[in-house]
Design a protein around this nucleic acid. Structure first.
Lengths: 199, 199
DNA sequence: CCTCCTGCTGATTCGTGAGTCAGCGACGCC
DNA sequence: GGCGTCGCTGACTCACGAATCAGCAGGAGG
């Protein structure tokens, strides 16, 4: 069977696991499914990962890391704060739609798996901090007026979390478009800017 | 073994199941645990509920129904809209703290179990509608100024959802007190009222 | 060309938990 | 007081999925 180096194979397995997780959830993901999707034996998965729990949390961590990279790339760009913030919220918000399934699953799973909780906490805090940073920059640049950038960041991202849950779990109750509009509306209110969407 | 009527026993089982669900999650809840907590045999549970899936969604539905009753009682009281709204948000928000574990689990589980999704959707929509109704009353009474009561209700409850997730899953990142304060702050902004907490 | 190392597998073990079933005993009813 | 219903149980089956292991093959290095 097509042999790979450890690194390549591990990443292949992680990617397949993330897909499986997003598609069928933590509880319903079988090691056999992941192996099957790659056309390898289940034993191979255990050759590379010592247990299923380990595999799942490493896979989630892998997905999280890739997301944070994309976030940092936007945050570090030289666009105006308003634009950067809007891009960040767009990335955080709808983006894909498959992503949210994974985060919702992850929050629930994190209630029980301490290892997963650490990753999930790190990811969430990082996100809110990044938003807060950009808000602070915008305030300094005179683009925003905001007395509490940190609180504002938490409230804005919380609205998105809350709305995204509704949009993802109860399909139809809120549209993606409404989600985006409302999220930006809250941001505008918090930052004392025009509610018109940029771009 | 202490014999009961069907109704009594069913409710006993449902209550025990809700407790178990809140404590250990949907995925980790065993029929044997529920039975054990009541000191009865697992077979009895299957005597009253045709399958585990059925038991779980009925239990969640049972908990949801009790919550909605409490909500309606507050909503229907004759206090001023501001006070009623605040009470509703308090009920929705911290209240217990064990409740949120259940909702987070339920959202994740609803992604896969259609029966559960129906219940969860009904509950969520009912909540947002109730908040919107009280906002509308407040507007009519001249207590609030709000151009979009429905949107405001969704945004306010979404913030609470989002913050409650953080408080519940990532203990320590936001305190209950901060959650309450921020939620009310968003409400005040939406309704153009004083951000001071009533009561 | 041989030979290890190592990635990989098929077959198997093992634990666990959902669901079943034959029967028992309490209690209402005649 | 006998009897039939019905809530209830213990002891079981059964399926499924995580984890193991002895060994197989491909390819790099001598």
């Amino acid at each position: 069977m097509a042999r790979r180096t450890v690194d390549v194979r591990r990443e292949e397995i992680l990617r397949a696991t993330v897909e499986q997780l997003a598609a069928t959830g933590f509880a319903e993901t079988r090691v056999a499914d992941v192996a099957g999707a790659l056309g390898v034996s289940t034993a191979l998965v255990f050759y590379h990962f010592e247990s299923k729990d380990r595999l799942l949390s490493e896979a989630f961590s892998y997905a999280a890391e890739r997301d944070l990279e994309r976030l940092e790339r936007i945050k570090g760009s030289d666009a105006a704060p308003v634009l950067r913030l809007h891009k960040m919220l767009s990335l955080y918000g709808p983006e894909g739609g498959q992503g949210w399934t994974l985060w919702i699953e992850a929050w629930a799973a994190a209630l029980r798996l301490p290892e997963l909780q650490k990753v999930s906490r790190r990811l969430d805090v990082h996100w809110k901090d990044a938003v807060a940073d950009v808000i602070r920059e915008g305030v300094e640049a005179g683009d925003f007026r905001c007395a509490d950038p940190n609180g504002a960041a938490w409230r804005i991202t919380a609205v998105i979390d809350g709305l995204a849950i509704q949009a993802t779990v109860h399909k139809g109750v809120v549209s993606r478009a409404t989600l985006t509009r409302w999220a930006w509306q809250v941001a505008a209110q918090e930052l004392d800017i025009d509610a018109e969407l940029p771009g």
